[in-house]
């Protein structure tokens, strides 16, 4: 999900860059130095996930996974996604400097939204958690597609056909991503629940799973 160089108008590029900078600033502020390795690693996984092509009907699509990044990272999704995009620009020239802002915004804003909308529900047991993960990933992709279409429409109202096609193309991707995200979150919850329940995985809690559960923590203190 990228807008390449040369499509968008000045006002759209600049205003989205301002919003992306604001989001990144908030994300960086909330990211402790203790979590910086964690964030870098997540950005690397996000980058690699973008290279995985999954069959969707007769064609295939690459994963986006901004929903999962949002659920795991919250506001830090902004700097994490920005870092991954810079790497993509340098390695593959998917975009350059002028579209970093809009592309960060397209993927990170939905990630943060999903974090607030579905984050509390994810840690619920069994079905509720899976349904929340499904809904989170679907919402993230849908919101991203809407932002992408909006950026084209704000550039030129007559881009309606292009914007509409962008939306339609993302429907099968949205469903595929949602299915994958539901299984993915289910797996993480079984294998390493503190990645989802405990907000931050710091050194103190790193050796015991129990320590990151709030109730136990209280009794320790």
């Amino acid at each position: 999900m990228h807008i390449s160089e040369g499509y968008l108008s000045g006002p759209v590029l600049l205003s989205s860059a301002v919003l992306a900078i604001a989001g990144t600033a908030i994300g960086l502020k909330r990211l402790d130095y203790e979590q910086i390795a964690q964030a870098g690693m997540m950005a690397a996984v996000f980058f690699v996930a973008g290279l995985i092509h999954v069959p969707v009907g007769p064609s295939n699509a690459h994963l986006i996974m901004n929903g999962i990044i949002g659920l795991l990272m919250g506001w830090s999704a902004f700097p994490v996604i920005l870092a991954a995009l810079v790497l993509q620009a340098v390695f593959f020239q998917f975009g350059g400097f002028t579209t970093l802002g809009i592309n960060t915004l397209i993927m990170a804003a939905p990630a943060v939204a999903v974090h607030y909308l579905f984050g509390p529900l994810i840690s619920r047991p069994h079905k509720t958690g899976s349904v929340a993960a499904f809904a989170a990933a679907a919402t993230a992709v849908a919101f991203s597609a809407v932002l992408m279409a909006a950026s084209l429409l704000f550039t030129d109202e007559k881009f309606w056909a292009l914007a509409g096609t962008t939306l339609v193309v993302h429907i099968p991707i949205m469903i595929t991503e949602a299915i994958i995200a539901a299984f993915c979150i289910g797996f993480i919850k079984k294998v390493k629940p503190e990645m989802i329940t405990g907000k931050t995985v710091t050194l103190k809690s790193s050796h015991s799973v129990i320590a990151s559960q709030p109730q136990e923590k209280r009794s320790c203190n």
Partner: peptide
């Protein structure tokens, strides 16, 4: 399969980050 593969990457990445 892809979901578990990806989830395994997230889990291992988190361990490695620590």
């Amino acid at each position: 399969t892809f979901a578990y593969l990806l989830a395994m990457m997230f889990v291992r990445a988190s361990e490695r980050a620590k």
